[in-house]
């Protein structure tokens, strides 16, 4: 099966959803990514990626509870699907495979 590969940012978002488990929603993912990557991450970009990943079937979502901190607004909690896990694993394997094919760095 020809698998659709993801771009770098989508992969990061998908991974963080997997990492955050039950608490994966827009703001949380954004903050988490900013912490990991030590760079600014735009909320809207995260949202767009989440929607795309959901369209592709790598994520599923449900509306979760509201907190005071969110001004009473609900969260959309994402969880990774089996297809999502599979695509992450496939990408990781491909990358490792490619690394293996790279000639060893020689020190001069």
């Amino acid at each position: 099966m020809a698998r659709e590969f993801l771009n770098e940012f989508e992969e990061l978002v998908l991974t963080s959803v997997a990492v955050l488990e039950d608490d994966a929603y827009g703001a949380a993912i954004t903050l988490e990514l900013e912490k990991w990557l030590e760079r600014k991450v735009t909320l809207s970009a995260v949202h767009v990626s989440l929607y795309k990943l959901e369209d592709k079937g790598y994520l599923k979502s449900k509306v979760g509870g509201a907190t005071n901190e969110r001004g009473g607004r609900s969260k959309r909690i994402y969880t990774i699907t089996n297809a999502g896990t599979a695509v992450l694993r496939a990408m990781r394997e491909k990358r490792v495979e490619l690394w293996g094919m790279m000639p060893q760095f020689k020190t001069i």
């Binding site: 929603y25 827009g26 909320l43 969110r70 001004g71 607004r73 969260k75 959309r76």
Partner: peptide, 12 residues
């Protein structure tokens, strides 16, 4: 999607 986006914005 409006509700959740607003929520995220407020949280941030």
């Amino acid at each position: 999607l409006v509700d959740q986006i607003e929520g995220d914005l407020i949280e941030l």
